[in-house]
Design a protein around this nucleic acid. Structure first.
Lengths: 346, 346
DNA sequence: CTGAAAGCGCTTACAG
DNA sequence: CTGAAAGCGCTTACAG
């Protein structure tokens, strides 16, 4: 029977069509759509069947224009490449599914681009915005967002900012745990590859490394700490620097996996074997970390879950009060012991 | 002076505010926004300065509701992981920048999910939708899109469909070129790792391989063609199968890089050296292909550019006529000779 | 070249 | 529990 209507179905039904078919006012249909109370069960049934018959879904643009929700979640990133953003998007999307929202991706490649943010926010009214590093630590962006009174969740950010929620793992503690793990394996000379300082996590992880050494009574040597900028080539070069040291470290803690994989290439190029000649560990549990040889010991971050929780938090903010934005969500991390680190043999 | 207004600026300006400030009607402002002709230079200036002073940007939701453009481009994918989608998104975003549009990402993980597509399309009115494999070959999705009369560009799709544009490289010819290259290196026994058959490109690339062999008068052996499903583990297993053959092939053509990298792991595990003991080549120019050791010889696809052109095509469709959707854009590919394939030495 | 009116599809605020 | 009216911020179609 819907076969017959096929031709008319071309123009999609709107709320009035549904109201007419159900024999109620559009306000009643709207009540159902927004799950308001005070709608008789009997009336509700009529609306439901009208919606089904007409294959109706409310138009987001119209709802967003009038109502207080837009059903649009913004994701502001500085760059789209990499496993991290993919995972974030997957997490957001699964949160959106639950909330009935849609994901709008925007790139903010320049630092401090407040103007673009203001523009963006006056163009499209977001229910909330999710920020990834390093954008989540860009004060210009944060201020523009605050001025526009848009609910924000920052992912894996360093410094807390009032009225903006945070979803993160304890980068400091995770890095401490990882360093402790290497120490427990007998390593005392541990090189550290730092990440991009515009990412809050870079500092936290370095702090964790330093404190773990200090707590174990091991001297922190500045020549063992090398910048790698969180990228593959940075890791490769940093490892080369560390390997040139005399004596060279017996283990390397790279503060992300991408750099660790770069470092592995360096180690390989020098004809050394992992973990026999040198141990290496990473951070993030990048897709590649299980694929490289040997598989990389690393810290697993539940990035997808972080992003999903960010969206559901955003959903609560719009419906209830803004106090939810004080929230700081800490998620569990997990030290994945694989094959790239071994007890010190000498 | 904008400092003084700061407090009132809180609520963003709308078209009426601009009109009032400029001393014109909202229609005139609208004319400027939509770059219509028939607006006196002098009037235009007044509007421009009012817009600047008020820091005004038109609201996308409102424009989308009334007008024929929504300024929203949909990207429908089946899965978010991987380098490919990142590149597609980057390309779309750079196209969106030019068109003043926004990217909305939607996941269609189930095959044949026409219901979800219909729903999506009645929720949000897209100016156009970009489809990636394998969604771009899902007839249920295609039909739903056609029924809704939404302009579509399919990326790297196999079978042409009326009224839907295609942006692709010539997968067939590229695979032929790559096979010819291996043949020119002296290889006659070339294993082929096939991709996921739900992707049109999988068949095209296989065809290219087969025809190249035939054209060179080399017998096509079915045991040399193994399924790898376009994924890392598939490639690893397929390579293991190929390496167990007696005699084993002297080269392997993996129809994407992800599988090629898996195959490299297999080869490595058997203690063989690339390219000394066996040559291997891939397809796609994945980020990892330059990073693995040795760097992988592969076909570079201009994925970003494909996506950017898709968006600009979509922009033309909305403004002008629908005939643009007959377009089939072929982009240049590039055989990147790196270190993973060498002349047959025996 | 410019403007006043109507309307896109909803939700809000108000009545009953 | 239900509805009629107004309005969100624009663009369309029509007048001048």
């Amino acid at each position: 029977m819907s076969e017959v209507k096929r031709h008319k179905t071309h123009k999609k039904a709107n709320i009035s069509d549904v109201a007419k078919k159900a024999g109620v006012s559009i306000k009643t249909v709207s009540r159902f759509l927004n799950q308001e109370k005070y709608i008789r069960e009997e009336t509700k049934e009529k609306v439901i069947s009208a919606i089904k018959a007409l294959n109706y879904s409310p138009n987001v643009q119209a709802r967003g224009l009038r109502g207080e929700r837009s059903y649009m979640i913004g994701l502001f990133v500085d760059d789209l490449s990499g496993d991290y953003i993919s995972k974030v998007q997957r997490g957001i999307l699964s949160g959106c599914e639950k909330e009935g929202s849609h994901l709008v991706v925007e790139v903010l490649s320049e630092r401090g681009s407040a103007a673009k943010v203001r523009d963006l926010l006056s163009c499209v009214r977001f229910d909330g915005v999710v920020l990834t590093p390093p954008v989540c630590d860009d004060m210009a962006v944060l201020n523009a967002l605050r001025d526009a009174a848009i609910p924000v969740v920052r992912l894996g950010a360093g410094i807390p900012v009032p009225d903006m929620a945070l979803a993160e793992i304890d980068d400091y503690q995770a890095a401490r745990d990882m360093t402790d793990y290497l120490i427990s394996l007998g390593h005392h000379s541990i090189g550290f590859i730092k990440g991009d300082p515009s990412h809050g996590s870079a500092h936290e992880r370095e702090r964790g490394y330093i404190h773990a050494l200090q707590a174990a009574g091991i001297a922190v040597k500045s020549e063992l700490i090398v910048q790698g900028m969180f990228c593959h080539s940075g890791g490769r070069e940093a490892a080369a620097t560390l390997l040139a040291l005399d004596p060279r470290p017996t283990a390397i803690f790279s503060s992300n996996d991408e750099m660790a994989i770069g470092a592995m290439a360096s180690i390989d190029a020098q004809g050394m074997k992992i973990p026999d000649d040198i141990s290496i560990v990473g951070f993030d549990d990048h897709v590649m970390s299980q694929i490289v040889l040997p598989p990389l010991t690393t810290i697993h971050q539940p990035i997808e879950q972080m992003a999903t929780e960010a969206v559901s938090l955003l959903g609560k903010v719009t419906k209830q009060d803004k106090s939810m934005l004080q929230t700081r969500i800490f998620l569990e991390y997990d030290l994945k012991v694989r094959k790239s680190a071994a007890p010190l043999s000498c």
